[in-house]
C-alpha cells in the first residue's frame, strides 16, 4: 500500500519542521457564517425527505395525496400508525405477522451465516493449506454476483422440493424456509469474507501466547480469538440482518401466500401498481415503522460498520 510511502513522507516533513502544537486557527465570523450556510443547506436537503414522511404519517385527514408542505399537520395524530398495525395492505395480514416473518427470516439467516462463516473465516485467515487460494477466489467470485443473478436456478431447484402428505402440501420454494436458503446462499460468502477481514486484524501473537501457556489450537481459537471477534460477529450479523430485512427480489419471486409475506413485500403492496387507493399517510407510517428499528441500531453501530467495510469489504 502507498500508506507506507506517505507516512514516511509525513514523518520526514514533521521532523523537519518540528511544528508547534497546531494552534487551531480561529475561523473568522464571515467564513464561519458562509460555511454554516453551506452545512445547513446540506443538512436541510438530508432532512427534507425525512420530515416529509414524518409529517405525512402524522396527518389526521388520512389524505390520499398531500397538497401542501407542512411539518406538523393540523391535529397531528397517530391514527395512521394504528391503521397500519391492524392491516397495512389489502391482504388479510397484520403488521405484526409481516414483521415476525421478516424478523425470523433476518435473524435466522444472520445467525447461521455468522456461525458457519466464522469457522471458515478462521481457516482462511490463520491457516495455509492446499486449495486455499482456489477456495478463496471461489468465495469472492460468488460474493461478486448479486442475489438476483442466481435467482433462476434457486427458484427452479427449490421448487422441486415438494412434499404432499394427504392434505398437507409443502413446497420449499413457496415457504420462508426456501427464502432463507436462497438468502443464505449469498449471505454466507459475505460473512466469510467480512469476518476474514476482521480476523486478519487480530494479532496472531495472542494465540501463540495461549499456545505457549498450554492451550491446544482449538482452545486458542475458542478461548482467545473467538471472544475477541465477538464485536465483529455482531456487526457482520447485523449487516446480514439489515440486508435480509429489506430483501425484496427473492421473497417476491418465491412467496405467494400472504401469510408468509415480509415487510418489504407489504410495503410493495402499498405502492405497487394495484395500490392506487392506499393513502400516502398510511404508506408513510409503514415506511417509518419499517425503517426505525433497524436505523436506530445501525446509527448506534455505524462507527464499527464503516471501518469494518474499509477493512473487510473493500480491501479484498
Amino acid at each position: 500500500m502507498s500508506d507506507n510511502s506517505s507516512t514516511s513522507f509525513v514523518t520526514r516533513l514533521a521532523k523537519r519542521f518540528k511544528a508547534k502544537p497546531s494552534s487551531s486557527r480561529r475561523l473568522g465570523l464571515g467564513p464561519q457564517l458562509l460555511l454554516q450556510l453551506i452545512m445547513f443547506t446540506i443538512a436541510a436537503s438530508v432532512m427534507y425527505p425525512l420530515l416529509w414522511v414524518i409529517s405525512l404519517s402524522l396527518d389526521p385527514r388520512n389524505i390520499l395525496r398531500p397538497t401542501e408542505l407542512r411539518l406538523i399537520p393540523p391535529g397531528a395524530t397517530l391514527e395512521n400508525y394504528r391503521q397500519v398495525f391492524i392491516q397495512p395492505t389489502p391482504n388479510p395480514v397484520s403488521l405484526s405477522e409481516l414483521a415476525l416473518n421478516s424478523f425470523s427470516l433476518s435473524i435466522g439467516t444472520a445467525i447461521v451465516s455468522v456461525l458457519i462463516g466464522v469457522f471458515a473465516a478462521y481457516a482462511f485467515s490463520r491457516r495455509r493449506f492446499a486449495g486455499r487460494q482456489a477456495l478463496m477466489i471461489s468465495v469472492l467470485a460468488v460474493l461478486m454476483l448479486p442475489a438476483i443473478a442466481t435467482l433462476p436456478a434457486l427458484f427452479v431447484l427449490l421448487n422441486r422440493v415438494q412434499i404432499s402428505i394427504g392434505e398437507i402440501q409443502f413446497n420449499l420454494r413457496n415457504s420462508l424456509w426456501g427464502v432463507s436458503l436462497a438468502v443464505l446462499s449469498g449471505l454466507l460468502p459475505f460473512a466469510i469474507w467480512n469476518l476474514k477481514g476482521y480476523l486478519d486484524t487480530i494479532p496472531k501473537d495472542l494465540e501463540e501466547a495461549a499456545l505457549i501457556d498450554g492451550c491446544t489450537r482449538n482452545q486458542a481459537f475458542f478461548r482467545v480469538t473467538l471472544p475477541l471477534a465477538v464485536p465483529a460477529l455482531a456487526v457482520t450479523g447485523f449487516l446480514g440482518f439489515m440486508a435480509t430485512w429489506s430483501e425484496f427480489a427473492i421473497s417476491w419471486q418465491f412467496l405467494t401466500n400472504p401469510k408468509d409475506f415480509t415487510l418489504a413485500m407489504g410495503l410493495y403492496n402499498m405502492v405497487g401498481q394495484f395500490a392506487g387507493s392506499v393513502s400516502w399517510s398510511r404508506f408513510s407510517a409503514m415506511a417509518i415503522l419499517f425503517a426505525l428499528p433497524v436505523s436506530v441500531v445501525y446509527l448506534y453501530l455505524q462507527k464499527y460498520i464503516v471501518s469494518g467495510l474499509a477493512i473487510g469489504g473493500v480491501k479484498g
Binding site: V46, S246, A291, V294, L299
Partner: peptide, 10 residues
Amino acid sequence: ILPIVIPQII
C-alpha cells in the same frame, strides 16, 4: 449519517 442508516428500499 442518516442516509446511510435508512434501508434503501424505504
